[in-house]
Design a protein around this nucleic acid. Structure first.
Lengths: 161, 161
DNA sequence: GCGATTTTGTCTACATGGAAACAATCTTGG
DNA sequence: CCAAGATTGTTTCCATGTAGACAAAATCGC
């Protein structure tokens, strides 16, 4: 192990892209450590979760919100339909789109895996204090222009960008 | 676009994994925006950079330090050798390992692309102030237990972990 | 020394994700 | 109406990354 630690990273250790990659790998490592053979992966979980909160939403809109490509969403949805976790419905007023809804099995599986994928809001990250974790999340949200789930964040028309 | 923004993210917007994924995509988006057809991708660049700073290091050690799998490192090195950017050398005292060195072409290409991949240390991230960027990077380094390139960080034997 | 284990790099599948072309549907301009 | 363009989802192909078996070489235990 010492051979690797002797490698000089140089300015790479201060690169945001490199730091973010390391951080993401570490966070996901803990998450993916104990995956059941029924295997609900993060992507599939997030789709189930959003479908539950937004029943009837079109899959393209979900894809855009999750920042995944529509092609990838197609694959995810096909897998979820094959496992009878969601149903597809083509609305009459626009037969291009596809609306998604949870099946009972999908709702049950979502509930069963919620605690695994949604760490408590106050759960501190490894090596960080609770305050540092909060600061980090706030900065990441600001960087990505994501509306943080604040305790009443003014429902005004944010003329973003 | 408004269709996607109407999607309620729920607690997903406070998930470290989701935030880190969004942040990484955003940072890499800027980076990958204008890639030459000669195409030096981030992975290949980081290998070149580390080989330059650590001439003669074994490729497995580089892989471990970059947190990529040895199999992946094999592919990267093969591509770099095929482009005549690095040379492989099997040391006499341990003929399992492979030492890497830059060719002149590799050194030239590295120099040409350095500014693209290594943003200035003080370069603030989008939507963040310089101070916020510094805080974010410090927290990410602490989270990943990465030794930050500080202005003289005590060369003691850190009994890490 | 010599067999068993470990280390190092490679190879072969396989999974994941992106790019671009495509078909179906809707919208727009005349 | 209807042809041209835009939107939505799908498909195909390719790049990237992982998992596990494997071969060569070193090390360890006796």
């Amino acid at each position: 192990m010492t051979a690797a630690e002797a490698i000089d990273l140089g300015r790479l250790s201060a690169e945001p892209g490199f730091l973010l990659r390391l951080a993401q790998l570490q966070v996901y490592e803990d998450l993916l450590a104990g995956l059941q053979p029924d295997g609900l992966r993060p992507g599939a979980f997030s789709v189930l979760y959003l479908v539950a909160r937004n029943p009837g939403a079109r899959q393209g809109a979900l894809a855009e919100r999750l920042t995944i490509k529509r092609a990838q969403m197609t694959k995810l949805v096909q897998a979820l339909v094959a496992r009878n976790l969601v149903t597809r419905h083509v609305p009459q007023d626009d037969r291009r789109g596809v609306q998604l809804r949870l099946t009972d099995a999908g709702a049950a599986l979502l509930k069963a895996h919620k605690t695994r994928f949604l760490a408590g809001d106050a759960q501190p990250l490894p090596n960080l204090s609770a305050a540092e974790t909060r600061t980090l999340k706030t900065l990441l949200a600001k960087l990505t222009r994501l509306e943080t789930a604040r305790p009443l964040p003014m429902r005004e028309k944010e003329t973003a960008s």
